[in-house]
């Protein structure tokens, strides 16, 4: 069996016996700085705007709804089933499809829509990153197929950075088959190192911080 052959070669090369105990790995390096919420929000916005993403602050769910309404006016949009979007009343907006749970239907809708609207499980202040865990509430394709992505995020979910994320979620696989970190709009520099946005994923990313 190739499995045993490969493992055997690894063990022979290392001089280890099958199932031999291993020394402790070096401790994981997790450093979480103390940063207050206002600074985290400010940093998150600076970072994402530096990547040509857009942000806006919405003091209330109603204002978030209004911001999204303005952004999708005259367009077609698909909204995820995130409870926070429902709290903001976004699924009821004109032109916004939501409540989709059938994968084939979701794919059709997302492939045709101008905008995908999601929430985010977390955001990372020091890199301008959205963290999305795939679930019944958040599908993978809503933030991926449409040319524009709007994320509506409660401000309390903005963490300092990667270290805090992995200390909250030391094993993301226990919760989801797919965790994706999104840092700005899709981009490439593959031709002459010239930056172009929106290659395969959304070329526009807007975050509404509530």
């Amino acid at each position: 069996m190739p499995r045993d052959a490969v493992l055997h070669r690894v063990r022979t090369a290392l001089g280890r016996g099958a199932g031999a105990p291993i020394p402790d790995p070096p401790p994981a390096r997790i450093r979480i700085p103390e940063v207050d919420l206002e600074s985290r929000i400010a940093s998150f916005r600076t970072r994402i705007e530096a990547l040509a993403g857009e942000t806006c602050l919405a003091p209330s769910p109603e204002q978030a709804r209004a911001a999204v309404a303005a952004a999708v006016e005259g367009k077609t949009a698909v909204a995820s089933n995130a409870p926070f979007l429902a709290e903001c009343g976004i699924p009821g907006l004109a032109g916004v499809r939501s409540g989709i749970t059938d994968p084939a239907e979701l794919r059709r809708q997302c492939a045709a829509a101008d905008v995908g609207i999601t929430s985010a499980d977390y955001a990372l202040a020091d890199t301008g990153t959205l963290v999305m865990l795939s679930s019944l509430q958040e599908a993978r394709l809503v933030s991926l197929l449409p040319p524009a992505h709007i994320a509506v995020v409660p401000r309390g979910r903005i963490l300092t950075g990667l270290d805090e994320l992995f200390s909250l979620l030391p094993r993301p696989a226990e919760q989801t088959s797919s965790m994706v970190l999104i840092t700005g709009p899709s981009r490439t520099a593959d031709i002459e190192q010239i930056l172009v946005r929106g290659v395969h994923g959304p070329g526009r990313v807007t975050v509404v911080i509530v």
Partner: peptide, 13 residues
Amino acid sequence: LLSVYTSFLSGPR
């Protein structure tokens, strides 16, 4: 600082 997409994938849907 980070690439645009970092996917952490374990198993099928």
